[in-house]
Structure formats: C-alpha cells, structure tokens
C-alpha cells in the first residue's frame, strides 16, 4: 500500500492521496478535473480507465454522474480540485437527487487556483464544501485530513456505498507536471473501449 506522506504544511501530499485512492482499483473509472488533478491521476499510472480533463471546468462531477448512470455496475470516482468544484457547485445538488450508489466525488483542496498563479480560492476563506455537499443532500460527505481518514475513504469508495463526497485537505506545494495524452477523442475512445470492448466504436 502506498505510503501517504504529509508536506511542509502538515497536510497530505496530493500525489500520494490519488495513488492510494486508485491503487488496486478493480476496474474503477476515474475522471480527473482539469489542472493538477488530471496530472495526479496520470502520475498514479495512465490508463484507459482514466479520463483526465483538459477543460470543461465545473463539469467533472456531472460527467461522473452521466458515466455512473450509464455503468451502474462500475465504480466511478471523480477526482477534482477546489476551484473546479466551486465553479460547478450546483452539480452537487444534481448528483444528490439522482443518488448514484457507484459515484464518489473527491475534491483535492489546496485552497488555491494552482494552474494560474496560486490565487486563493474561497475554501481558503472558510467556505465549507462538505457542508455544501451535505446541504445538497449527499449524506456521506466528509472532511479528510489524515492518512487514516484517507484509508477509510478509500475503503468506502471501493465498497460502493455512494453517493459519497470528500474534501481532502492537501499540501499546496506544486508537483512536477505529468501530462496525459492531449488528443481528447482518444481519451474518450479508449475509455469506451475499456468498458465495452471494440463494439464501442460501432455504437
């Protein structure tokens, strides 16, 4: 099992968090929100089961919803950032109303817009995404600060008792770029093929 280190701020290191969540994933599909979460899921090991986003800011959670509704037998984990989640925060209500058991939304919260010069996000100033998710109706919404809490989160994600929302406080330090393929039609087609086989291309 991946060791989950803490950074200089005493918060969890994002790459370790994502690697732990995706380890022994058993076919779990992952959507990575644009920016650092997309690099994080790629650093954990690029795979057709990964859909790293190069755009669509604010849409990651509902992309996960559409995928989870289409593939109810598969786990779907959306891993995104605090800025991306804040832009589409109404989607928590849309997800909650649909109650997809196989969907988890994990926000890697470094309290900054990391790709644009580390400007502070609202979470730096007390905005509580867990409370917003709870208020939207996602009963299992939790704050994760420690390695122990993260391992519990991992177990619950893999158990499939969603919908589940987690805000994981992470160290704000920037990690080396690990870029996924940028040709988005390939990213889409490879995940479809991983799920449905070659028939996917004849749909």
């Amino acid at each position: 099992m991946t060791e989950i280190a803490v950074g200089p701020t005493g918060k969890l290191m994002r790459r370790d968090v994502v690697k732990a969540l995706l380890e022994n994933r058993d076919g779990m599909l992952a959507i990575g929100g644009l920016g650092a979460p997309a690099w994080d899921i790629t650093a954990a090991g690029d795979s057709p089961l990964n859909l790293p986003l190069w755009g669509g800011m604010g849409g990651a959670a509902v992309m996960g919803l559409g995928l989870a509704l289409a593939q109810p037998e598969r786990k779907v984990c959306v891993i995104t950032g605090d800025g991306e989640m804040l832009m589409g925060v109404g989607s928590l209500a849309t997800v909650a109303v649909q109650r997809p058991r196989n969907l988890s939304i994990v926000v890697l919260d470094n309290e900054h817009y990391g790709e644009t010069g580390m400007q502070e996000t609202h979470t730096k100033h007390g905005v509580d995404l867990v409370m917003m998710a709870k208020g939207a109706g996602i009963a299992d919404s939790r704050l994760v600060r420690t390695a122990e809490e993260l391992l519990k989160l991992r177990a619950d994600i893999h158990a499939g008792n969603g919908p589940l929302f987690a805000q994981v406080k992470i160290d704000e330090g920037t990690q080396p770029l690990v870029l996924p393929p940028r040709e988005a039609s390939i990213l889409q087609a490879r995940m479809r093929e991983a799920i449905m086989g070659p028939e996917a291309h004849l749909q």
Binding site: V62, M63, L65, G66, A70, Q71, R192, I195
Partner: peptide, 10 residues
Amino acid sequence: ALAFGAWLGG
C-alpha cells in the same frame, strides 16, 4: 457534461 459522461459509459 452529462452527455459526455453518458457517452463514455455507452
């Protein structure tokens, strides 16, 4: 976003 997720899942 929903349309994209749905199509990813067939």
